[in-house]
Design a protein around this nucleic acid. Structure first.
Length: 420
DNA sequence: TCTGGGGTCCTAGGACCC
DNA sequence: TCTGGGGTCCTAGGACCC
């Protein structure tokens, strides 16, 4: 048996933990640059604010319904997530953290000794009591069915008490018939569209398709999903693997037209990638730099370009990656465009302790202790305290974050005050 | 004026090898 | 008329997730 535990409206719920006066009121959380809606409380959903709604288009609706708007506060959400995952890890020896607000637990054999319904309700109670975050739980014999069970729990909180279990063939069929094909985990827009042309409208219809058709049109991924939904365990818990790509990309608060402006950003992004690489003890062997104009502005000339650079040696030095990224940018930068977004993605990792000497080795060994020192100083005195000279030293945080909540749980100066 | 960010896996096709 | 057969590796693009 698998349980899928999912936090309800996670980011919005995190904001409400520290603002209990907002319980029962519409709350939304915006993406970086306060661009679009990335989380909504139930009340905000009821008003008709869709996921991904551009904030500027919904300004008047926000005002009309007194929606409380927050800028994304990832320091807060990451910390709350850790707390919840730590609690849930006590409920099974086998766990997969699937995303910031979701995890799978293996509950094999648990049902023989006690009621899984009670067990789930106990999890909910503890997580809510200890963190203030509401969760929903789905339990079934396969991963995709536990996802489905979770959806039912979330949709009918009173009836299910937030815990739904698919433990019979009858319940499985009923649930599959209820689930629209486009809501199946692993079926996106494209597949849903194609499946509709085959008169497939529910998850149940999907499980009746011939294997050959699914294999041919949706690859082995679609076939695995079909079997998993049929109740044949096909998808298993996965261990955390080191990342294969690491990206730092941002939209800008305004359009950039000068090379120097873009270069400063690219150097900063490369440094951030290097930091993330060092954290997972990997070196990268290639990197990609991309720059984009604003695709929404059809009235402006468009230019989207990226370039992949193979590095002469593996590295996770901020200095070296910044240098390579900056050289790459020079190759693709074109004067005369208004740039809105850029990014650096590093790839082709090897573990940092695998020393591969190449014929033209020219990496600077002294960067290793240097980077270690920088990381330690930044950890102690705050992010970005030590920077490269090619970064803008005056730049603090130009991202638009007008409604940022305090870092209640990770910054001592932001800790909540209680007036008795 | 304003529209997010960060990942994964699979496949087809080309280049190359013997 | 007819022009081998069997591999591997790499990459770009497409699909998906939260």
């Amino acid at each position: 048996m698998f349980a899928l535990i999912d936090c309800n409206n996670f980011y919005a719920s995190c904001e409400r933990v520290f603002r209990p006066d907002l319980n029962g009121k519409p709350v939304v959380v915006l993406s970086n640059n306060d661009g679009c809606v990335i989380a909504r409380s139930n009340e905000a959903k009821a008003i008709g604010i869709p996921m991904g709604a551009p904030a500027f288009e919904y300004e008047s609706l926000f005002q009309q319904h007194q929606v409380y708007v927050f800028s994304a506060n990832f320091a807060l959400y990451g910390d709350m997530s850790n707390r919840i995952m730590t609690i849930l890890s006590n409920y099974s020896p086998e766990m997969e953290i699937y995303s910031i607000d979701e995890c799978f637990l293996r509950l094999n054999g648990f049902g023989k000794h006690f009621s899984l319904q009670d067990y789930g309700e106990q999890m909910r109670l503890q997580v809510t009591k200890w963190t203030g975050i509401p969760i929903s739980i789905g339990i079934a014999t396969t991963k995709s069915l536990s996802k489905l069970a979770n959806r039912i729990a979330k949709k009918f909180p009173e009836k299910t008490k937030g815990v739904y279990i698919i433990d019979s063939e009858e319940k499985r069929i009923k649930a599959l018939k209820w689930l629209k094909i486009e809501d199946v985990w692993g079926i996106g827009k494209q597949h849903a569209k194609r499946l509709h042309t085959q008169q497939v409208t529910s998850a149940y219809d999907y499980t009746l398709l011939p294997d050959d058709w699914v294999r041919k049109n949706m690859s082995v991924v679609g076939l695995r999903l079909k079997h998993d939904l049929q109740g044949i365990p096909t998808l298993d818990l996965e261990d955390v693997q080191p990342k294969k790509n690491i990206a730092t990309t941002r939209s800008f608060e305004s359009n950039y037209t000068q090379f120097e402006q873009l270069n400063e950003r690219i150097v900063t992004f490369a440094g951030s990638c290097a930091e993330k690489l060092r954290k997972q003890k990997s070196c990268c062997q290639s990197l990609m730099v991309f720059i984009h104009t604003n695709g929404h502005r059809k009235d402006l000339p468009q230019y989207n370009q990226n370039i992949v650079v193979k590095l002469p040696f593996p590295t996770h030095s901020s200095i070296e990656l910044a240098r390579f990224a900056s050289q790459a940018l020079k190759l693709i930068f074109k004067q005369g465009y208004a740039y809105k977004k850029a990014g650096v993605i590093v790839q082709d990792f090897i573990p940092e302790n695998v020393l591969q000497t190449t014929l033209f080795e020219n990496r600077n060994e002294r960067h290793i202790p240097l980077m270690k020192t920088i990381d330690q100083l930044n950890a102690r005195y705050g992010q970005q305290k030590i920077r490269l000279a090619s970064q803008d030293l005056k730049r603090v945080w130009k991202m638009k974050q007008e409604k940022l909540s305090p870092r209640y749980t990770t910054q001592l100066s932001d800790i909540i005050t209680i007036n008795v």
